[in-house]
């Protein structure tokens, strides 16, 4: 990047509001607070909200949206390899015979 990108104030303000709104949403979908219960999807919903929040921080506060695309490649590949580690470990655990599984 040859020069720092100047982001208008209202963009930062809107992102902040979105983050706060998503935080409120996280609390609202929590079973002990609202009684909302999606069963096995509770975890998925919480992680999805958290991922959107992380994406907003990366894109705007960390300037990934405006920066050299190489940095985007680095971030995406990092997330990919993390998903790979968790994904294949999950495949192993879910497909183990119940008799030999330690879980």
């Amino acid at each position: 990047m040859s020069a720092h990108n100047i982001v208008p104030f209202h963009v930062y303000r809107n992102v902040l509001l979105a983050l706060l709104a998503l935080t409120v949403l996280t609390v609202l979908v929590a079973k002990p607070v609202s009684g909302f219960d999606a069963g096995i999807f509770n975890f998925v919903i919480a992680m999805a909200i958290a991922s959107v929040k992380a994406g907003l921080v990366l894109a705007f506060f960390m300037q990934l949206k405006y920066d050299n695309k190489l940095f985007l490649v680095i971030i995406v590949s990092t997330v990919f390899f993390l998903a790979l580690l968790f994904g294949i470990c999950t495949i192993d655990i879910l497909t183990r015979p119940a008799l030999t599984s330690t879980l």
Binding site: F81, L84, I91
Partner: peptide, 22 residues
């Protein structure tokens, strides 16, 4: 190189499905 680690665990209690993939 990142996709192959499970070949160290063919007889460690890893599932057969994971073993075949690795």
């Amino acid at each position: 190189s990142f996709f192959v680690w499970g070949h160290h665990m063919f007889v460690s209690g890893q599932s057969e499905v994971a073993g075949v993939i690795f």
